[in-house]
């Protein structure tokens, strides 16, 4: 059974994708953020462009920082953004 995930984007990730969120049906077999990014990159050229260098991206699952190899488990929201620059 596929799982629905809300993906939210910020800063230049949002600008370059041209949208602030996506609702994605993750197919079976996709359990980590890295796997999801590969799946999205296969689907659309804009994802291939924006997600090409994952070193420049940071991730949060349900508002907690996680790494690229984190599994979604029961998470509802994935955020993808550049390194933070507040303060």
């Amino acid at each position: 059974m596929s799982k629905q995930l809300n993906i939210v984007y910020f800063a230049w990730v949002k600008e370059r994708l041209g949208r602030d969120h996506d609702i994605v049906d993750c197919p079976d077999g996709i359990g980590t953020i890295g796997e999801l990014l590969e799946y999205l990159k296969d689907k659309e050229a804009v994802y291939r462009d924006v997600f090409s260098d994952t070193e420049r991206l940071r991730f949060a699952l349900d508002q907690d920082f996680v790494r690229l190899d984190a599994t979604f488990d029961a998470a509802k929201e994935l955020a993808i953004f550049p390194p933070v620059t507040g303060g």
């Binding site: 910020f10 800063a11 953004f81 550049p82 933070v84 620059t85 507040g86 303060g87």
Partner: peptide, 24 residues
Amino acid sequence: QLKTVAPFWKKEIMQDGTENWVEE
């Protein structure tokens, strides 16, 4: 800590109208 883990992003608006996202 705030500078590395609080989810804020700064964009510079220059006098000539160009815009740049600040890098970490």
